[in-house]
Amino acid sequence: MLSSAEAAARRRISSALRAEADDIADRWVQLQLDRGALGKQVSEVELREEADDLVAALTSGLDSDIPVENLVATHQELRQAVSELSLRRARAGAPPTGTSLAVLYLKEALLEAVQRQTRDGDELFTSALLVNRLLDTAGALSFETYVEGREEIIRRQSRQLLEVSTPVVRLWRHVLAVPLIGTLDTARTQVVMENLLQAIQENEAQIAIIDITGVPTVDTAVAQHLLQTVNAVRLMGADCVISGIRPPIAQTIAQLGIDLSTILTRATLADALTAAVKLTEDSSAQADPRDAR
């Protein structure tokens, strides 16, 4: 019984959408502008384009045989329309509640259109329930996508920050240095490793100095990453010097039982550079390595 009433209401909403697509979109844009939920971040032209997309997606979604509860989640076009709208607002800096409220305003625009089609109380009530169920899931998806969109922005920004905070500088002929400042985590050591290896290849560097004077603490994970970096550098045919290990860090490394004995270490960056220059001069002076044996 209920399902047949529901089916009728669904057809009713569908036909209202079809008959008044432009009006519904206009009204929705108007509602969003009037209530000012979005601030000034999204222009009216953009709002209108979004509205057209979403109304079209809703129409084709309701024509499918997917249950209303799952429609937003599973209908490709509808899901995409809601996600894109929310992502765009997240990127534009619109507030999160405003974004999901804006999606919910569509209920009003849609129900007004249904009301223009029928005056039957029961049918209107069933339609209202249906529209609620449908657009509540859209509101929820919108909020979720918005948050993901912000997170993506944060990830991208911290990545960019990483790139600028880990410069590889050329100190001498065939000698590079990476002065590390601040806390080292996995992501950061990864970027250091990638940038350093790339720079070694480009500069034909023989020695890379990793200076950790500005690193407050070193834990097991970071020490392992440093070791991995040194190993990768060696695989490429260059070598590493680690400088600036301060006494507390030396203590930690010793207590953690991490073996850095195969790695050349120096107290200061200056000492490391002296050692590096000597090493590169030795290796180029050594015409025939077999003589050295």
Partner: peptide
Amino acid sequence: VAGMRPPVAITLV
């Protein structure tokens, strides 16, 4: 062994 590419070195490690 000469000329290992950086991504190869990272992956190998």
